[in-house]
Design a protein around this nucleic acid. Structure first.
Length: 391
DNA sequence: TCTGGGGTCCTAGGACCC
DNA sequence: TCTGGGGTCCTAGGACCC
């Protein structure tokens, strides 16, 4: 019997890099790294060709946002500092990030998926979960393959995305989100991987524990210290040991995850919880010596945040700030207001009070402003004006 | 040559209320 | 005066993800 629930995880292949390759096809096959500010824009030359910046000439504090597969082969990866990456791949082409463009392609691929699967869970710019179970044909057998129906659906989704955007994606299809997320990575790029619980021991258990979404650097290191490296080794640990080592909640989850169990539904609606703006300075600033510059950046962040809230139609009650010092230590302060707001002046006042509660002796490398406790702005309007009057 | 920017969720202590 | 338990909100920090 095939499982009754079929969840797909769709992940666009090297998304930002692939979008850039559509624009600059001459870079295909070359190591290309995307990240950093706007300074390294490609220059159109007199003969009509473009001149691209090379990674070796970069200086600054940026990190890699995405790298093409040839660049990854040189040992660079997203999150790596561009200066460090330049040592490993000096000849790699460096392109600035263009989120506007990526968001446009994101909307395009999601619209294409929606033609086949109207409801899906949005997991950011380049991935989604889709519950295939209820779609027409999902439970069909095709040519003696009991999973043939879902396989055909997944292939159809891949084809649609490809023809709508010119981009490839990889899809994992399994009985749950946890396994599908892992599966979509198994055959990347342009993969389609279908697994059932029967495949757990063979396909999932040999993988490193870090393949499980939710096991990050800290938990991975702690597991390694316990001589647990693969998911299979994690699955073999007594539940009680995991509870003792990782606490009731996370320990129990680790045990379930290692056994491929996850019953979370695909969430097709969500509301934002917080919005924020932050910036890392080119050089560290000092609260007193660089007071004017810091104040200007602070005001700009507040105005951007207020703009974001207003444009998206939200107000918030909890204003927060974030500071990162030269030693990378990070502190946050927040303050809840009596009423929600999206006004820059109110946010600035509250954020200013937060700032006063921080010891500003050290040099600062990052400043951020945040709003949490969000509500739709229209809901607030209703509260102020009261319910519609009925005679 | 260390380490961006935008998020979510969890924990934990203290305040405050019933 | 002491002894409770439960619930919610606020704040700070941290793990993790894309």
């Amino acid at each position: 019997m095939p499982p009754r629930r079929w969840i797909a995880h769709l992940d666009m292949d090297a998304f930002y890099a692939s979008v850039e390759l559509l624009r600059y096809p001459e870079l295909r096959g070359l190591p290309v790294v995307i990240g950093g500010g706007r300074r390294h824009q490609p220059q159109l030359q007199a003969d009509g060709t473009r001149r691209f910046a090379l990674l070796q000439h970069y200086s600054g504090r940026g990190v890699i946002t995405t790298a093409t597969y040839p660049a990854r082969d040189l040992g660079v990866h997203s999150g790596m500092g561009l200066m460090k990456a330049a040592l490993r791949a000096p000849q790699a082409v460096l392109l600035p990030v263009d989120f506007e463009r990526y968001r446009a392609y994101s909307r395009r691929f999601k619209a294409a998926v929606a033609e086949i699967a109207p409801a899906f869970e949005d997991r950011g710019i380049d991935e989604i979960y889709i519950d295939l179970s209820a779609l027409p044909g999902a439970q069909d057998s095709v040519a003696h393959d009991p999973c043939g129906g879902v396989r055909a659906l997944a292939q159809e989704i891949k084809n649609t995305v490809r023809s709508a955007t010119g981009l490839n994606c990889s899809i994992g299809v399994t009985p749950n989100k946890l396994l599908s997320k892992i599966a979509s990575d198994l055959d990347k790029p342009d993969g389609l991987t279908l697994l059932t619980h029967a495949d757990l021991a063979e396909r999932i258990w040999p993988l490193p524990v870090r393949s499980i979404k939710g096991i990050g650097p800290k938990s991975g290191a702690k597991l390694a210290a316990l001589a647990i490296h693969s998911i299979g080794e994690l699955a073999a640990m007594p539940r009680a040991t995991l509870l003792a080592e990782f606490g009731r909640s996370y320990g129990a989850w680790l045990h379930e995850a290692a056994h491929g169990r996850d019953d979370r539904p695909v969430q097709t609606h969500s509301e934002p919880v917080s919005m924020s703006r932050e910036t890392t300075f080119e050089v560290d600033l000092h609260a007193l010596r660089d007071r004017a510059e810091l104040g200007a950046i602070f005001s700009q962040l507040v105005e951007q945040l207020a703009g974001d809230l207003q444009r998206k139609g939200y107000i918030g009650r909890t204003v927060g700030i974030k500071l990162r010092f030269d030693d990378f230590a990070t502190v946050t302060r927040d303050l809840s207001l009596a009423h929600g707001t999206a006004e820059a002046s109110t946010i600035r006042l509250a954020a200013g009070l937060c700032l006063k509660r921080v010891d500003l002796a050290r040099r600062i490398r990052l400043l951020g402003v945040r709003m949490a406790g969000l509500q739709r702005a229209t809901a607030d309007l209703a509260a102020v004006t009261g319910p519609p009057h009925r005679p």
